[in-house]
C-alpha cells in the first residue's frame, strides 16, 4: 500500500514534468540524437543473496532541449551464480526522461526518471527447475559524462535502479562510450 502511494506520486510528478517539456519551446541544439554502447554490472538482491551478472548495454536518446532528453536502454543477457542458485538476466529494457546539468570543464551530470522492466530466470545449480518472470517498476538513475577526443564523444558512468520492491532490488553500475549526432 505504501509503495503504491509513493509510486502514484512519482508518476504524477513525472507526468507533470513531461507535460512541461511538451509545451516548452524546443531549444535549438547542434545535436539531436545520441547512441551509447557499454556494459552494466548489475546487483540483484533477493532473500539476503546477491547476484552480479554483467550485461552488454545499448542506449539511444533524443534531445528535446539541450538539457532534456528521452532515452531508451536495452541490456542483453548475463548471469551469475551464488548460494547454489543460477541467476540469469535475460534482458532489461527501460525508458527515461533525462535531465542534464550542462557541461562544466567538459563534464556534466544527469538524472534519469522513468520505468524499467527486467526479466530474470532462476534455476538451481543442481539442475532443479526454477522460474522466469518479469519485474517492472519506476526506475531512476544518476550519471556522469566526460567529453573525450571530440565534442561529440563521451565516456559515461551511471548508476541505475531498475526495481526495488518487496525486498527485491535490481540495480546496476554502467560504463559506456557515447556518440552524439
Amino acid at each position: 500500500m505504501d509503495h503504491s502511494i509513493t509510486g502514484t506520486f512519482r508518476y504524477r510528478a513525472l507526468t507533470l514534468l513531461l507535460c512541461g517539456a511538451w509545451f516548452s519551446p524546443t531549444a535549438s541544439a547542434s545535436n539531436w540524437w545520441y547512441a551509447e554502447v557499454g556494459v552494466t554490472r548489475t546487483r540483484i538482491d533477493a532473500s539476503a543473496t546477491e547476484f552480479n551478472p554483467v550485461l552488454p548495454r545499448l542506449k539511444l536518446g533524443f534531445f528535446i532541449t539541450p538539457q532534456i532528453m528521452l532515452e531508451a536502454h536495452y541490456a542483453g543477457s548475463g548471469d551469475d551464480t551464488a548460494a547454489n542458485t543460477h541467476m540469469e538476466v535475460e534482458e532489461i529494457t527501460a525508458a527515461y526522461l533525462r535531465l542534464d546539468s550542462g557541461f562544466r570543464s567538459d563534464m556534466r551530470m544527469y538524472v534519469l526518471l522513468g520505468g524499467a522492466e527486467s526479466t530474470l530466470k532462476v534455476t538451481g545449480t543442481g539442475g532443479s527447475t526454477g522460474g522466469t518472470d518479469s519485474y517492472s517498476d519506476f526506475s531512476w538513475g544518476i550519471g556522469l559524462e566526460s567529453r573525450v577526443w571530440t565534442n561529440n564523444t563521451l565516456l559515461t558512468l551511471e548508476y541505475t535502479e531498475y526495481y526495488n520492491h518487496d525486498d527485491v532490488t535490481i540495480a546496476g553500475v554502467s560504463l559506456g562510450f557515447k556518440f552524439e549526432y
Binding site: 542458485t85 520505468g115 517492472s136 527485491v168
Partner: peptide, 29 residues
C-alpha cells in the same frame, strides 16, 4: 515519443512475482 513515454510510465507500477523469486533463491540456497 513523449506521448508514448507518458503512456509507458503510466503503466509502471511495480509488478512481478517477487515472492516466487525469493522462494526459488531460498529453495536453492
Amino acid at each position: 515519443s513523449l506521448a508514448l513515454f507518458v503512456l509507458l510510465l503510466s503503466a509502471c507500477g511495480p509488478t512481478g512475482d517477487t515472492e516466487g523469486l525469493k522462494q526459488h533463491v531460498v529453495k536453492n540456497k
